[in-house]
Amino acid sequence: MTTVSAPVVEPMGLHSLKVVSNASESPDTSTIVLDSPGITFHAGQFMMLYAFGVGEAPISVSGNPHSPGTLVHTIRRVGPVTDALCGLRPGDSLGVRGPYGDSWPAGEQGDDLLIVAGGLGMAPLRPAVFEAMANRSRYRNVSLIYGARTPADLLFKDDLVGWMSTSSIDVAVTVDRATSDWWGHVGLVTNEFSRVDFRPESTTALVCGPEVMMRVVARSLRDLGVPASSTWLSLERNMKCAIGFCGHCQFGSDFLCKDGPVLSYDRLAWRLGVDEL
């Protein structure tokens, strides 16, 4: 049997950090910036954020992995914890632990990188865009397809404008509903596959959004010839501990908190076809 010798630090222990700013992204979503000296992360990872007396929630890091010193989180109000987090003001304290989970893969040298985001899925993919821009020479073409409900629900509008003004990344923004003064597209993200440049057999696809949207996207990419092992999805389940102890986030054999949240479609395909797994 295992022997225990060294003293153990509480693995769910928290650090107290201060809020630097809190800005509204859309009607129900806020981006908070934390002063976080010494914390580094990889694109796609998440932190556990703790609102005093309310509880913890897993929140992906939405900032730039190459900007140390601050942590950026984009949070949607979906319950008491996220309500409390979105209500934090500059100077307030919150508890954090992490980062947790695996990160978006870089893909092969010379690949096309196709980033497909839906709704709040843009938050964990924003660091992947920064990462791709920092390593732009790694890829042939880099594209971002971003779908949202309405133009008002788009996150990171300043970034989008910036990315659209450079030639290093193709950006296609599409919404489910808009009026005809909208400058982007109206339609599903899959409509944009014919409008951005990628060679299916040499593409690494990073996908995050509602699970139904990810299923549709992953299957469409498969039908176009993108290998299932090159399509990566970031899944969401009820993560409570983030360290594989609490059991809540199991998806088949994987604890999504530590085996995921980013997993390739070839590993996920059958599970995404099982109801209530």
């Binding site: 769910m12 703790y50 005093f52 007396g53 100077g91 304290s93």
Partner: peptide, 11 residues
């Protein structure tokens, strides 16, 4: 697991 208090604006 943890005991948390507020003190001078910190946790």
């Amino acid at each position: 697991l943890l005991h948390i208090r507020r003190s001078n604006g910190d946790l």
